[in-house]
Design a protein around this nucleic acid. Structure first.
Lengths: 242, 242
DNA sequence: TCTACTTAGAGTCAATCTGACTCTTACAAA
DNA sequence: TTTGTAAGAGTCAGATTGACTCTAAGTAGA
């Protein structure tokens, strides 16, 4: 006990992003938070997470807390940052290694909601426990920055999607309109997307192509790090969670 | 003792980059390594670092090990990644939070060299302890990637420098020739550099302008994280190390 | 069955950016 | 005074990007 108190504690937390229809109808960027059930910050909202166990990989720990709090599996998972300021926890010294994740919107609907787990609009959060507001701000910044130079947007979508759906991800996350024609040109030039040959029927207009991501291309370039995390970055869609 | 063994240990290491003239005369990218003086990997080269102490910030710990092993202060310091695979240390479980740093070349000459601290060419390293080869590869990748879209090159240089010197940083780090005219246009357009009005004399050709970095502009955009690390990112040149 | 409405998807155009290149300037050395 | 070298200004063509137009192909309603 006293030994543990005199050491630096190591925790893993995860910022989980999803896109969900708001009350008004249009989709918005949301993330799940858990209510703290003990001091410090008892009763306040915080990022899902917990102490790192001895026989658990960092990314595994992030996936696990994600699964435990939301019953979801990440479509995209990446390490965000290690936070270790001296004063970030009032009593003990905690270093938090934070991950950020994307989950598909339609899965997010099936996610757990309870008294102690709730989804919040990413841009309008209450005052969170610890330095978690800063952490979420940074995760948001990384998400927005990365969306512009990388191809991670489909992490919010299902296996197949129209270009309009993909474009809507950009518009909602970046909070600005995107020209449909130029967007199409950009996506086609990137070569990361493949037409399935099927079309989405039932629209009150010309039926759009359905696309699928070219899984042979890695979503983002992690450099030499992909040697380490590549097999874990993309969790199979068809994987059963047992 | 046994309590410590059953917990996850937390260490901070730093990849330190400098530019130094090679034996052949032209500058090359080098980094200091320390020889391990105990098991595991006794006798092998490893990144400078050590356990995180209870009352020390992460970036401080990185700066400290940097100062201890090389007697240098970083011109640029940034968190690289937290490495935590289960098998990265043979006996115990260690999570290493790794930083990477740039030090000025002329200062690097004054750096410590000893039996157990030596500088190596970054692209031609021996087999290192633990997963440190992977870590250096990743740090190199980040350095090269970041150099292209960010303005960190002057971290290798002194307070004033010519555009040719700045361009040489790019050429050596990126391992490709850079067109002088286009480079000048790019740097001038970025607005991060200010002419001092002085010129470098003694060259066998037209004397070049000396420039200085515009310190009012932050070197890189860390987003919301600058709230946290901005004052620490840039360590004053004139600061005495006491 | 025809018309209106809506988005898909192809294409155009001009401004900007980028890489390759030329030309003149200003110093040191011979 | 001539020669060599890099500084620094400038040019030009191809690629990229944002704004925009036009036709295609569905549904819904008259």
């Amino acid at each position: 006990m006293s030994t543990a108190e005199s050491q630096v504690a190591l925790a893993v937390s995860t910022v989980i992003f999803a896109l969900r229809p708001s009350a008004a109808g249009e989709p918005e960027l949301v993330l799940p938070l858990v209510r703290r059930i003990r001091e410090p910050y008892e009763g306040q909202w915080a990022l899902p997470g917990g102490p790192l166990t001895l026989h658990e990989d960092l990314a595994e720990a992030a996936s696990r807390t994600l699964l435990e709090t939301t019953a979801l599996e990440p479509r995209y998972l990446e390490q965000l940052y290690a936070f270790g300021q001296l004063d970030r926890s009032p009593d003990d010294r905690v270093v938090s290694i934070v991950y950020w994740a994307l989950v598909a919107g339609d899965e997010a609907d099936r996610a757990i909601q309870s008294e102690n787990v709730q989804w919040f609009t990413a841009d309008d959060l209450p005052e969170l426990a610890f330095d978690h507001n800063l952490i979420v701000d940074y995760a948001l910044w990384r998400l927005r920055t990365k969306l512009e130079y990388s191809r991670i947007a489909h992490g919010f979508l299902g296996e197949t999607f129209t270009l309009a759906q993909l474009r809507e991800v950009y518009e909602v996350v970046l909070r600005k309109p995107v020209d449909p024609g130029n967007f199409r040109r950009m996506v086609e030039a990137s070569g990361t997307v493949v037409a399935t040959g099927e079309r989405l029927a039932g629209t009150p207009h010309r039926p759009p192509q359905l696309y699928r991501y070219d899984t042979s291309i890695d979503l983002t370039d992690h450099g030499p790090l992909s040697r380490l995390s590549a097999p874990r970055t993309y969790v199979s869609l068809r994987g059963e969670n047992t």
